[in-house]
């Protein structure tokens, strides 16, 4: 039998993950040299807390990308969740109830997304563009077109749970991201649903003909996406202590970036959720490190844009070289 290590390397998509992990390490070392404070425990735990929301939405987008679709409503669902939870809490609803209501609203968007794409057969780009606009509209309507006031002292526990508190030395936000990642990674790699997600992304027709329910699996993927967005929305509320209507704007694209840097194929069927961790980390490290280095936001944006393109380009080059032999073979046969 092969050694476990070899088997680990042989996992499909591991190559890209290893490449970007190396990139992440190099980046961190470079930033560490530029400013020793980068590795201070204070900055590290702040950095991890910055990464957590990106990782969460990355998980959601990865699920959807793996079935070969896209979720453009991510940022709006974050904003919607932020506004709904904050509005409820400012009106005196107990935080726990507010959280449950918010989750229910977000999951509704997930179901709608899934049905639009799988049942109505809308291109996901269009379907989720619609829900993106609608969810943003709901975010605005939640408090009559105003950001909310402070969610108040009664929500202290809520704010600690999602943002300020620490457990075993780490911020709770980090724990939330970690636990959710473990759960969703398990679902993806070890369960039937996970297998079906890869199968649909790889060849939807083959999956359908093999008896895989494309509709329910697609809905599940969008539900995961909506759920993590909701969590990020709650984290946003806890962070600022109020609801902001424009919370989470452009997050859907950050989520694509985290997934794609980590090796999730935008065409579906390929990639590991482990890669998304690395992708999100590179994102966070760049933001944090460049900030430390004193780079203005404009420069940060440019650098990150370049990194996204280059990392995907590298993957394309590697794959097309591999593909050449395969393509030639196909011609002959």
């Amino acid at each position: 039998m092969e050694s476990p290590f070899k088997r680990f390397l042989a996992i499909r998509g591991m190559g890209q993950v290893i490449t970007v992990t190396t990139g992440l390490i190099i980046l961190s070392v470079v930033f560490g040299f530029m400013n020793p404070m980068f590795f201070s425990s204070r900055n590290v735990s702040n950095l991890l807390r910055q990464i957590a929301p990106i990782l969460l939405i990355g998980i959601g987008q990865s699920y959807v990308l793996l079935i070969g679709q896209i979720d453009l409503s991510i940022g709006s669902v974050v904003g919607m969740s932020c506004m709904i939870s904050a509005t409820l809490m400012t009106r005196g609803v107990p935080p726990i109830v507010a959280v449950l209501i918010t989750i229910a609203c977000a999951l509704t968007v997930g179901v709608v997304n899934g049905l639009l794409v799988a049942w109505c057969k809308l291109p996901s780009f269009i379907g989720t563009l619609g829900t993106m606009t609608i969810a943003r509209g709901i975010a605005q309507i939640a408090n009559n077109n105003f950001n909310t006031d402070s969610i108040g002292d009664g929500a202290e526990g809520f704010r600690n749970f999602f943002y300020y508190g620490r457990t075993a030395g780490l911020y709770n936000t980090i724990w939330i991201a970690l636990v959710l990642w473990l759960i969703f990674n398990f679902v993806l790699t070890r369960t039937r649903t996970g297998r079906h997600i890869y199968a649909i992304g790889s060849n939807i027709e083959a999956a359908r003909l093999s008896g895989v329910s494309v509709i329910s699996t697609t809905v599940k993927a969008y539900l995961v996406s909506a759920f993590v967005c909701c969590v990020v929305g709650l984290i946003t509320t806890a962070t600022s202590g109020m609801g902001a209507m424009d919370a989470g704007s452009s997050y859907e694209l950050y989520a694509v970036a985290a997934s794609v840097i980590g090796g999730i194929s935008t065409l579906g069927g390929q990639g590991l959720l482990f890669g998304t961790v690395i992708g999100a980390s590179i994102w966070g490290v760049l933001q944090n490190g460049l900030q430390f280095a004193g780079a203005p936001i404009a420069i940060r944006n440019i650098v990150i844009g370049v990194i996204v393109v280059v990392s995907v380009l590298l993957d394309v080059i590697v794959r097309s070289n591999k593909g050449k032999g395969f393509k030639m073979f196909k011609r002959q046969s």
């Binding site: 499909r12 070890r190 369960t191 039937r192 649903t193 996970g194 297998r195 079906h196 890869y198 199968a199 992304g201 790889s202 060849n203 027709e205 083959a206 999956a207 003909l209 093999s210 008896g211 895989v212 069927g269 390929q270």
Partner: peptide, 25 residues
Amino acid sequence: LNMCSHLTVAENIFLGKEIHSKGLL
């Protein structure tokens, strides 16, 4: 041919009729 090209042979053979207990493969 109707196969999921990203999945393994075994995964394709059992696609849609995976052996599982309570959803665990």
